[in-house]
Design a protein around this nucleic acid. Structure first.
Lengths: 346, 346
DNA sequence: CCCTCTCGGAACATTTTTAGTCCCACAAAA
DNA sequence: TTTTGTGGGACTAAAAATGTTCCGAGAGGG
C-alpha cells in the first residue's frame, strides 16, 4: 500500500522526491549541528549557499526551523516532522542506497534500479527499457557522432520502442550476428527499430548463429558487406546489451544437451554478447559469431548492461565481474538479490 | 498511516499536491475525450496551451500518453495509473472539496481547512495561526495603509507569534476592551505582539470587562485616550477574530450562573467579539464593552474568523450565520462536524 | 573596552526555466 | 479541392532560480 503510493508518486511527480529528500537532509543536518549558520551548513551539504538558503527559508516559513543570531535551530515541530520523515525517506530513497552499494561493490560508474520485479510484472521491463533509453539519449547528446551497438532481447526491444530523438549522424548496429529468435527480439531488429526512432542510420549483420569456425572465417573472408559491418561494430563507442541466464540462453541457442550440462557443471551462470561466465567472472565458453566479443568491451566508450528479475541476479553479477560495465540498469528484485549474494561474501 | 503521509507531504513539499492533482486532471481529461488535441484540451482545463503542453510532454515521456496525428490518447499503463491515482487524489484534496462545500453553504469568500483536530493536537492550532498569518499578510500587501483589529485567544496569539513582515503604515488595535484573561491571550497583548512582528504601530484599549453601561459611558465620555482608540477601532479595515463556545466564554467571563443558564437555555452556542449567537445566527446577548460590535462588521473591509476543534463546530456555524465572514480558517475536525450538521439540515 | 568573527539579511547580476505566441507540415474530414 | 484539427518546432518575453557580494548586528575573545 505504502510502497504503492511511493511508486505512484515517483512515476507522476518524480521531481518532488528529490525535493523532499533534499529538505529532509537539510533539516536533519541542522538538527545534528544546531545552532549552525548558512555557510557552514551549505558546505556540509555540498550545496551552494543560495540554494540552501531557498530551502531553509522554506523550512522557516513552514515553522520547522528558527533563525537566531547564533544560527539556525530545529523547532519542536521540526523534530516531530524529522522523526516521522525518517522511515518515509528511507523507503523513498531505499533504492538509491542500494544503487550506491552495488556501484561500489561492482565497480560500476552508475547503477539505476527500477522499483519492482520484472519476472513478475512486465511493466518493470518496460520501465527498464525506458531508463536505458534515457541513459542512451544522454550519451548521444554529449557527442553527436556515434556508433551504437545493441543486443537483442525483450528489454532491449522495449528500449528501442520507447526512445525518440534526432541523431542523423549516429549509426546503430547489432552487437553480434543473428540469434535464432523471434524476429522482434533479434539484435538486427532492435537495431533497426532503434535507428528509426532516433532518426539514425543502421546496418544489419546477417550471420547465422552457431556456425562452425571455418564457415565463419570464410564468410568474413568472402562477404564484403559483412566484413564492413563487423568493422563498424568493432569500433562502436556505445554498447547496450542484455544479460541472460547461462542455462536459459544455452537452451535458447539449441546447444547440445551434453554440452549444456558440461557448461553448467563448470559454473556458467551468466551470458552476455555470446559469452558464458561463472559467478566469479571467469569465462567458461564463448559462442562463435561475428561482432563484439567480451575482450572488445574495454575498447568501447560506454557499456550499458540491462537486465532485471530476481532469477537473473547471479547472471548479472557474473557478467559485471567478467567485464567492465559503465552503466547497469536493473530492477529492485535483482538488485536486492545481488546485494544478498554480495553480503554473503560470494 | 496514509493520512499521515499525506499530511507530512503537504507540510514539507506542499507544491506536490497541486502538481500531482494537475497532472491527474490532464490525464483524466484525455482519458475522457481521447483522442484530443492540445488546444482543445487546454480550453477544457482552463490552462494555457503552453503549460498544458509541458504537462502532456511529461506524461508522454512517462509513457502514460501517446501522441498521434489525430490527438493524444492514454496508454494502457496510463489507465492503470489513472485508476490508482483516483482515490489518492481524492484524499489528497479531500479538504479542498470540504472547503468548497463550506464556502458555498456559509456564503464565505474563502475557507481554509488545516488537517487535524486542534482539540487533540496543539500543533493544529499553531498551523491555524500560521494560516491566518498568511492570509493577513496577503491582505496587508494589497494596501499598505491598514488598521487591523484583533481579538484574543490562543489561536490568535499563535498567529501573532508566527507572522513577520514590514508594514510601518499599519496600526494594530484590539477589537474590544480587555478580557480578564491570561495576559498572553488578551487582545491587547496579541495586538502588541502582532504589531511588533509586523513592524507596525499599535494602540491599546484599557477598558475593564463587564462594566456597567453607565460606567462604560462615563469612561468613553471622559477618557480622551480611550475614545480616540475606540474611534480607530471602529474604522478598522481588517478584523481577525477568534470564535468561542458560548458556555465556555460565559464562564470564562464570570457571568453569574443563573444568567449563563438562561443564555444557554435560549440557544446561545457561539461567541465572537462579545456577542452570543444561536445556531441559526440570531443574537442572544451582547457583552457590554468598548470596541467593535457585530453590527460594525459589515462596515469592515475584511473579516477573518479563526477557530477549530470539533467542539467548536456549532459555535463557528452560529457566528458565521450571524455576521458576514470573509475568510474562515478552521481545522479538519470542525469542518467535518460543520458539514455533518449542515447536511442534517440544521 | 575594542576587535574580530560569524551570523542573517539583502541587493544585484546572471543564468536558467517557464510561459506566451506564432508558424508549419500533415492528416482527416468535408 | 478546401477546411479544420493535429503535433511539433521555434522564437521571444517574463519570471524564477542561482551565483555573488556586501552589510550591519551581535557574540565572544582578547
Amino acid at each position: 500500500m505504502i510502497d504503492n503510493i511511493i511508486n505512484l508518486q515517483k512515476k507522476i511527480v518524480p521531481e518532488l522526491t528529490n525535493l523532499l529528500v533534499e529538505r529532509y537532509k537539510v533539516l536533519r543536518q541542522v538538527s545534528n549541528e544546531q545552532p549552525i549558520g548558512r555557510r557552514a551548513l551549505a558546505a556540509k551539504l555540498n550545496l551552494s549557499e543560495r540554494v540552501l538558503r531557498a530551502q531553509v527559508d522554506f523550512l522557516k516559513n513552514a515553522g520547522l526551523l528558527v533563525f537566531s543570531t547564533s544560527g539556525m535551530s530545529v523547532t519542536e515541530e521540526g523534530n516531530n516532522i524529522l522523526r516521522e520523515l525518517a522511515d518515509y525517506v528511507q523507503k523513498l530513497q531505499g533504492l538509491s542506497s542500494l544503487e550506491q552499494y552495488l556501484l561500489a561493490r561492482l565497480n560500476i560508474k552508475q547503477v539505476v534500479i527500477i522499483p519492482g520485479d520484472s519476472d513478475k510484472e512486465p511493466v518493470v521491463k518496460r520501465e527498464m527499457g525506458r531508463a536505458a533509453a534515457r541513459q542512451l539519449l544522454i550519451l548521444l547528446k554529449e557527442s553527436k557522432c556515434n556508433i551504437v551497438a545493441v543486443s537483442g532481447g525483450t528489454t532491449l526491444a522495449a528500449m528501442a520502442a520507447n526512445i525518440s530523438g534526432n541523431f542523423p549522424e549516429t549509426v546503430v548496429v547489432p552487437a553480434r550476428g543473428g540469434l535464432g529468435d523471434t524476429v522482434e527480439l533479434q539484435a538486427n531488429t532492435v537495431a533497426t527499430v532503434l535507428a528509426q526512432h532516433l532518426h539514425a542510420s543502421y546496418r544489419q549483420l546477417y550471420v547465422p548463429d552457431s556456425v562452425s569456425q571455418e564457415v565463419l572465417r570464410s564468410i568474413l573472408a568472402e562477404d564484403e558487406g559483412v566484413r564492413a559491418v563487423v568493422d563498424i561494430v568493432k569500433h562502436a563507442n556505445i554498447l547496450v546489451h542484455g544479460i541472460g541466464r547461462a542455462d536459459v540462453m544455452a537452451r535458447h541457442r539449441h546447444l547440445p544437451q551434453p554440452f549444456i550440462d558440461k557448461l553448467l557443471a563448470e559454473g556458467a551462470v551468466g551470458e552476455a554478447v555470446g559469452q558464458y561466465t561463472a559467478l566469479d567472472g571467469s569465462q567458461i565458453f564463448m559462442t562463435n559469431n561475428a561482432g563484439l566479443m567480451m575482450q572488445d568491451l574495454p575498447q568501447i566508450g560506454t557499456v550499458i548492461g540491462v537486465a532485471g528479475g530476481k532469477s537473473k541476479a547471479k547472471a548479472i553479477l557474473a557478467v559485471s565481474r567478467a567485464t567492465r560495465q559503465d552503466i547497469l540498469i536493473t530492477d529492485e528484485a535483482a538488485a536486492n538479490e545481488m546485494a544478498n549474494i554480495l553480503s554473503n561474501g560470494q
